[in-house]
Simulated scan of single mutants.
Amino acid sequence: MTDPLQAFLQTNGLASAPFAPGSRYHGLPTAEHTRPDGSVVAFVKRRFVPPPASFALIQEHEVVAGDRLDNLAAHYLGDPLLFWRLCDANGAMRPDELTAEPGRRLRITLPAGVPGLAGDGGDAG
């Protein structure tokens, strides 16, 4: 049975995005690869993360023992699934390292591309 909403969207040229607006992959293009056996594999094209200095700083958080990125994202960004924004803003390739050492200062920033106020620590202005 066809989903009536999806049928309406397709009929009217409105395709649903493959990723939710809060996803780190939202807005990225997708592509397909055809394997030698003829099967097709869809994938998301490469995501390039801007340098941490390009994110407008809101505030900093000093890590304490027991901090977790999902809890920090929920507290500062309103959604635990946005932990990846903390990773991007702090240049983390390994998310667990951000909270491994008490005393580390984490940058809490606006989303990429959202300008902050002059003197906020980001290049956006």
Rank of each mutant, 00 (worst) to 15 (best):
P18G: 06
P52N: 04
P52A: 07
S16P: 09
R35C: 02
D123R: 13
A53F: 12
P50I: 11
D88I: 00
S39T: 02
F43K: 01
F8K: 14
A42C: 08
H75E: 15
G22V: 07
E62K: 08
K45A: 04
A112C: 06
G78R: 08
V44Y: 04
A7K: 15
R94Q: 15
C87F: 08
P4T: 04
A92L: 08
A124I: 09
S54K: 06
R105Q: 09
L9M: 14
L117M: 11
P111W: 09
L72C: 02
A42Q: 05
V44S: 01
N71A: 12
L81D: 05
R46C: 06
G91Y: 00
L77P: 01
G38Q: 00
P18C: 05
P36H: 10
G113I: 04
L28S: 02
H75Q: 12
A7W: 14
R107A: 06
T2Y: 14
P36G: 04
Y76E: 04
F19L: 07
P115L: 09
G78T: 08
L110A: 05
R47K: 03
P50E: 12
A15N: 13
E60F: 09
I108E: 02
N71Y: 14
G125F: 13
L86S: 01
P52C: 01
A56G: 10
P80I: 02
L14M: 14
A65H: 13
P51E: 10
G22R: 12
G119V: 10
C87L: 04
L9K: 14
S23E: 03
F48H: 11
R85M: 02
V49W: 03
F43V: 00
E32P: 03
G91A: 05
N71Q: 13
Y76D: 01
I58E: 00
E32N: 01
S23M: 11
Q59P: 05
L72T: 00
A56R: 02
G121M: 02
A118P: 11
L28R: 09
S54Q: 09
P36V: 05
F43I: 01
V49S: 02
W84T: 01
R46W: 08
M93F: 15
R24D: 06
R104A: 03
L77K: 07
D79Y: 12
D88R: 00
N12F: 15
N71D: 09
P52D: 06
Q10A: 15
A20Y: 14
G38H: 02
F55Y: 07
P102V: 13
L86K: 03
A7N: 11
F19D: 03
R105I: 11
